[in-house]
Design a protein around this nucleic acid. Sequence first.
DNA 1: GTGTGACGGATCGTATATTATCCCTTCCAC
DNA 2: GTGGAAGGGATAATATACGATCCGTCACAC
Lengths: 230, 230
Amino acid sequence: MAREQMSEAAERSKSQLAYHWLKERIASEELTPGYRLVLGSIADQLGMSVVPVREAIRRLEAEGLVTFERNVGARVSMIDDTQYRHSMEALAILEGAATALAARHLTDDDLRQARDLNRRLVESLDDFDPHLFTAVNHSFHAVLFAACPNPRMRALVDAEWTRLGHLRDSTFSFVPGRAQESVREHEVLLDLIETGAPLPDIERAARGHRSATLAAYLSHEHPDGVTTSL
Amino acid sequence: MAREQMSEAAERSKSQLAYHWLKERIASEELTPGYRLVLGSIADQLGMSVVPVREAIRRLEAEGLVTFERNVGARVSMIDDTQYRHSMEALAILEGAATALAARHLTDDDLRQARDLNRRLVESLDDFDPHLFTAVNHSFHAVLFAACPNPRMRALVDAEWTRLGHLRDSTFSFVPGRAQESVREHEVLLDLIETGAPLPDIERAARGHRSATLAAYLSHEHPDGVTTSL
DNA sequence: GTGTGACGGATCGTATATTATCCCTTCCAC
DNA sequence: GTGGAAGGGATAATATACGATCCGTCACAC
């Protein structure tokens, strides 16, 4: 169905369509890690042949969202503990730098928006919902580094964030106490930015903020805390 | 030709074959930026159909080595001034962090190897060849961050380095004087690592080293130096 | 009962064929 | 001579078809 409706906005090729369709479903957790992605079935669901689907999956594979095994097929990437740790460490570094690079380019409006979002985070602390908290938390940080004038850095941060996907929730699910520290650190970070603190200070604060989240997760998973020491 | 020789080591699928074939040729500058990649021709040269070639190109596209335009085709990515700057900035951040993370894991052997490579760089200063210098320079830094225990960081650094591709040469071609500073900074960096300096110091040195290379390039291209200030 | 081998369904890998799109050239009108 | 439209060649986009590979199951022998 829906095959001849190239009426007007049929901009995207089928391969792009499949790509976005899959990516969206992975992001929304409709397709959970480990889920088997059968080319033929997907092609059927989308009313296209397998060729565009293959290309879409290849692209997702290159982005790390999907893993592929020869002659066996694709499945949504599983991120294990170790990978999670490594990815979070990378994100801490990237996001810290991006936030610092953005600091001098944030408008009053941006900062107001960030404070609003953090206020929402504070409010959500009663009646705590890890999923919602994670989402708003993302928005908060997104506002901060969106002003980063280096598009390459923004792309890297985005990619890493997507890669971590829903796994991000887990920290706040497992260690709810971390959420409270988190919002306090947000305030500190905003203050630093607003008062025009030296960029290295801002970078350190932003990086430390995410490292602390990682540490909270690790200390929950592996009570024999191994600390990362950058 | 060479079509039925699946005698023994035919491990890789054709799509992987095409991927590596192309990537190698791009890295070796046999295919220069802007070069038009015609699916059919490549398929013919490799003795396969276009389908695997498409997949290979899709993957290269996701990695940023190739740009694709709908209904028009693929070409080897051009990196302009602006992108170069952004990518170098990202590399400075990533490589700096990776080097710091690696510092405590470098063996005596690694350090010896690094010093050897830097010695070769010093020697090559007379009779200067930018291309050779860049290659050895890469090896030097590769030794340093190869010991980084975070594979995600290593992957990101590698990807960024590949992305910059041959463009790296240009700095040393345009600003030969930078090479001399560079090797001196290498010594400083090695000393810091060997004496067990604090990791933030090492990171700062490594990042600053690359930022300085970028600055040298920029001040050559745009004599009204805009400095990056992280 | 257990191990081994063969069969078959499911799915992937690739080739070939068909259709759609773009771009360049040519031709005609003014 | 110039602008614009029509046509054709090249190439990409997708569909279909076929062969290859894997994996689970069943049967048979020991």
